[in-house]
Write a protein that binds this DNA or RNA. Structure first.
Lengths: 127, 127
DNA sequence: TGGGATAGTGACAATATTATCCATATGATT
DNA sequence: AATCATATGGATAATATTGTCACTATCCCA
């Protein structure tokens, strides 16, 4: 596992939250699991842009931080289910606030990003 | 300016929000400005861990995304003030939600981070 | 026998972000 | 004349994060 060289300060609430959900796919994964998409392969189908490897990496961190629990079922075919813990559930309102703001302002942000000639793909083409 | 090679998808609300406030110091800077700490040098004093250079970089992005406005005053000594736009103000509730969650769970997150032997500095030492 | 589905991981490459160093400019202060 | 404060930005180094490839393992299906 990679170890930071520069210490991360957890002296500010936002930093603490970012420590937990700051990964590129973590909010998305939490979102999936809260909606009953709880097997790695299913999650990967829901987030096609992320590879299974990356999803596993992020899941294992969410597991460490006790945001999700993992249940492995015996036998084949292999079956594993991730579920939100009560602690993980407390994150939903935060993610929801972020989700709502982003949805509400996606057009504007996308337009600015385009003007900056950033390499973004839009959720839809403006007409 | 750096240009992404891999396109960033803005097809998910959280991604849009992260695009705007995802920088390491941006929420903190927005926090400062909303509390009347609105000159670069002042902000730097409030966030000693970040250099003035970095703060300026993040400010210029916040400016591009119309989260803040910038007012330059004539004459010397130089004086510049950044202020939240109405658009920027709409972010405060999001940042506040993140702040509250982080504050509420800082102890637990810090403990887990320590168990993982991550390189973190705690907001206080547990007794 | 040759895939394909399932889940998982080590090693490393690629990319992205942040930090550092140095430079400009101007006037006041020591 | 040197230093400091103010604000800003180029160039590059350092760091951190994410993605890719290859591999293990087991069973089912064609």
């Amino acid at each position: 596992m990679y170890h930071n060289k520069i210490p991360q300060a957890l002296d500010y609430g936002v930093s603490v939250t970012m420590k937990v959900i700051g990964g590129k796919w973590k909010p998305c994964i939490i979102d999936c699991i809260s909606n009953g998409i709880n097997r790695p392969a299913q999650i990967q189908k829901a987030i096609k842009q992320a590879s299974l490897r990356v999803i596993n990496q992020q899941l294992s961190e969410l597991l460490d931080y006790e945001i999700v629990t993992k249940e492995s079922f015996e036998g084949y075919p292999l079956k594993v289910e991730y579920t939100l813990t009560p602690f993980g559930n407390t994150l939903l309102s935060v993610i929801d606030a972020m989700q709502q703001w982003g949805d509400a302002h996606a057009d504007k942000v996308a337009e600015i990003a385009m003007n900056r000639k950033e390499n973004v793909t839009l959720y839809r083409n403006k007409t």
